[in-house]
Amino acid sequence: MPIKEFIDILSLWTLPAIILIILTVALIKKVPIYEAFIEGAKDGVKVSFNIIPYLVAIIVAISMLRASGAIDSLAIVCSGILNKIHMPIEILPLAIVRSLSGSAALGVFSDIIANNDINSYTSKLAAIMLGSSETTFYVLTVYFGAIGVKKYRYALLTGLSADLVGIIMAIIVARFFFG
């Protein structure tokens, strides 16, 4: 499988190559790289501490929501509509959770592929949905937490709207390729 090999090499080399390029260019330009690294790294420590309160607030709320079984209840209530739009019921928790928590989304995805044929439409749809997602709540919390912004204005609404576009597109594309 040449595509698979190409991807493996690409994933193996991107990170080392980027670091190598940055350090080499810096050395040619006579930047004191070690001192520069320490200077930047100090900011990293400071910023991480700023994020703690924001992250605790949102992660606790999301953990509570997941433990309450509210997402599963919603899936049962919506099962009629889901059938009409060709979305298997077990996909709904993934569609919701992928905006809330990255590790939870991975867990839900593992459940789906364990309970369905790996080559089935459901598994492929789940894979596309997970592969095209970013944890919107986490990203907003970390970025705004780092700089102390408390009013998100339209940032959350934008993120969630785009997530919805992603969910709808995932269903359309999965139907087209694998349906």
Binding site: V25, A36, G44, L55
Partner: peptide, 24 residues
């Protein structure tokens, strides 16, 4: 998550400072 982030942030903001100073 914060602990993981702390290490990653420290490392990458260090690397980014180098990228900034070298004009990249």
């Amino acid at each position: 998550i914060i602990l993981t982030l702390l290490g990653i942030m420290t490392f990458w903001l260090g690397i980014m400072k180098i990228a900034e100073k070298s004009g990249i």
